[in-house]
Nucleic acid binder design. Structure first.
Length: 624
RNA sequence: UGGUCGAUGGUGUAAUCGGUAGCACAGCAGAUUUUGGUUCUGUUAGUCGAGGUUCAAAUCCUCGUCGACCAGCCA
């Protein structure tokens, strides 16, 4: 049997383990997830606490945690809190919760724990002074604008008037910066690398900037804060990270990552006898392609904006690509992990069809979600000959299968009465070919109920059908086929539709969501994401009727409403005022079929309001 | 325009340092079905281009083409 193909990161780690590059876990380091003597693999997820985590972050979490688990290593959660002006405690709490929910068990068997860049500020500063003394860093008196002007361009080297300042002078200035003697932005500490480098990242990058702002963790202890490049490699080093995995856009920064570690290691050696002591750990930065999805925007700035603007109800709006939003929508952590696994890990930029995410959820829920019947947009159906089979107001309890994929889920009783509700989309007065549902003269099976034939309709003044009149066949109880006729043939029916009793039901509010954007690549058309927001991404259905038992459904429960999709109970749900979210529709080949004839009169809308993923939805024509 | 990186069906991803281009999703066709769901079967479709090396190239070389990223005191 051939093994599963290993992605490039697994191959790198395989090779590292074979060569012993990172050494082995010592007994003291091991918890239940590690074994002494096995090769060290230590990863981390380093979010900046300035926003909520989204599906893009999920890939990084799954990758980093997954590698630690696969190789019996460790996974750290580390807050990269180096910029006090943008970060808030609110985000810290949310991120912890989301990472854990997704399965990034940073405190489990493969967890290294939770860490803070801000806890290293002291050590980072000490190393900064060291670099100044080595002549590898200097204080620059340029402000941001001046530095930008002297940055040079593709063909022109940068200029820096203070780079030849003596180490003593720089050290004095750095200490005064730290002491708070200078205003914000007036000076910086810069690495002395190469003003002529074609890689702008190396043109004497800033290591520290002056920011007089309270930090959520260190308070007002500091007024200088480290920049990403200076801080990140040190954080990794201090935590013993082996594989520092980041996204592609940090490729240009890798030489700087290595430069800083090497700069610290100047004057250090393996046995600690160097002038500055022992070598510090040098992790390896490796870049991979982040997750991008069609019809989706991950930009933190943009997501923050639509929350502020009230375009969505909050960070946990079920239409948001945030982990909280998706969780509320009904996505499971396992389905998100599955997507991350499916799409692979490479160094090629790519865009994943959001439909694959939806498929992951369907696959999982199909196996486990209990089935129920629910009518989102009710149309009354009256059985005119119901009285012939007994009392006209009788209730018959029907036996419905809870999950055809899982026999152990058993069955449940469902109340059937002479007046029912069916889905408005399941009746057409003038049906097109291949419409297998109800129409004048047509017969359908009511699932687990009876076969009914439409004999008439009732209309309102405007000509809208308000009631469908049917006869039922008492010989089809349970939805079973009737006995063979006199000629030995069995009557057939093409369609089976769902229903809910008009008198024995649970009223509910159902929120059906469509994609937040109507363009496959939001912003492509006009340059603004806002122009592609789908104005119909939310529809609230207040007249939905469900099986009685659903009146007591509790927050977090998930069901398949037969023929419609998967739904979960929203946090807004209250006893007597149940609220469901549609997580995802079922695949709907009829919607697709009928959409082929779109434009022709008499073509029905896809089942269940505003169309699922069918080309008839708002995304129609979005493809270039 | 300087640098770095990438390019395999519609999409995503394999092909163990040159040896039969495979898998998944989507699509299409059919079977099963008391969900137009699920499941099953079959099927369409690909190595960015031009040269070169070689018995043999997705893989190596050259030159192009296209795309991504970089000139924050953001990360």
């Amino acid at each position: 049997m051939p093994d599963e193909p290993r992605h490039f990161l697994e191959q790198i780690i395989d090779a590292d383990n074979a060569s012993g590059k990172w050494g082995q876990w010592s007994p003291a380091e091991c918890t239940s997830g590690q074994t002494p003597g096995t090769s060290r693999v230590h990863t981390r997820f380093p979010p900046e606490p300035n926003g909520y985590l989204h599906i893009g972050h999920a890939k990084s979490i799954c990758l980093n945690y997954g590698l630690a688990e696969e190789f019996g290593g460790k996974f750290n959660l580390r807050f990269d809190d180096t910029n006090p002006s943008k970060e808030e405690q609110e985000y810290v709490d949310a991120i912890k919760e989301d990472v854990a929910w997704l399965g990034g068990a940073y405190e489990g068997a493969f967890g290294g724990g939770i860490f803070w860049a801000s806890d290293y500020f002291g050590q980072m500063y000490a190393w900064a002074e060291e670099l100044v003394q080595k002549g590898l860093a200097y204080v620059c008196d340029l402000n941001a604008e001046q530095m930008s002007q002297m940055r040079g361009d593709l063909k022109t080297p940068a200029r820096s008037p203070h780079r030849e300042r003596s180490p003593q002078e720089s050290l004095d200035l750095l200490r005064r910066m730290k002491a708070g003697e200078f205003p914000d932005g007036s000076r910086t500490l810069r690495a002395k690398i190469d003003l002529n480098s074609p890689n702008f990242v190396l043109r004497d990058p800033v290591m520290y900037r002056i920011v007089h702002a309270p930090h959520h963790n260190t308070g007002d202890a500091w007024c200088i804060y480290p920049m990403y490049d200076w801080a990140h490699c040190l954080e990794d080093s201090l935590e013993g990270i082996t594989h520092s995995i980041c996204t592609l856009e940090f490729r240009n920064n890798r030489p700087l990552y290595d430069w800083f570690i090497n700069a610290i290691n100047q004057g250090r050696n393996a046995d600690g006898s160097g002038k500055y002591g022992k070598l510090v750990h040098h992790p390896q930065q490796i870049e991979f392609a982040k997750l991008k999805l069609t019809y989706t925007v991950m930009s933190k700035r943009f997501l923050l904006q639509i929350v502020k603007d009230g375009k969505v109800s909050g960070w946990d709006d079920p239409r948001m690509p945030t982990l909280r939003g998706m969780r509320r929508r009904g996505y499971t952590a396992a389905s998100i992990r599955q997507l991350c696994k499916d799409v692979g890990v490479t160094t090629q930029d790519s865009v994943i069809d959001v439909g694959r995410l939806e498929n992951c959820l369907r696959d999982e829920l199909n196996k486990v979600a209990p089935r129920r019947m629910g009518v989102l947009r009710p149309l009354r159906l009256r059985i005119v000959n119901w009285g012939e089979g007994g009392a006209a107001d009788r209730v018959e309890m029907m036996n419905a299968i809870n999950n055809p994929e899982d026999a152990s889920a058993g069955t449940r009783p469902v109340a059937f009465t002479g007046e029912l509700f069916i889905e408005r989309d399941d009746f057409m007065e003038n049906p097109p070919k291949k419409f297998f549902r109800l129409a004048p003269g047509a017969e359908v099976r009511l699932r687990y109920g009876y076969w009914v034939r439409c004999v008439d309709v009732v209309k309102d003044g405007a000509g809208n059908v308000t009631e469908v009149l049917c006869t039922y066949d008492p010989q089809t109880r349970g939805g079973d086929d009737p006995p063979p006729g006199p000629d030995g043939t069995v009557r057939k029916v093409k369609g089976t539709i769902h229903w809910v009793s008009a008198t024995r039901n649970a009223k509910a509010e159902v929120r059906v969501f469509d994609r937040l954007f109507s363009a496959e690549t939001p912003g492509e058309r006009t340059g603004s994401f806002f122009d592609d927001l789908n104005p119909n991404s939310l529809e609230v259905l207040r007249d939905a009727v469900l099986e009685e038992s659903l009146a007591h459904a509790e927050h977090g429960e998930r069901f398949q409403f037969e023929r419609l999709g998967y739904f979960c109970v929203d946090q807004d749900s209250r006893p007597g005022a149940v609220v469901f979210n549609r997580s995802v529709t079922l695949k709907d080949t009829w919607a697709k079929e009928s959409a082929k004839d779109a434009g022709k009169p008499g073509t029905p809308a896809p089942r269940g309001t505003q169309g699922p993923q069918g080309p008839q939805g708002p995304q129609a024509g979005a493809k270039k």
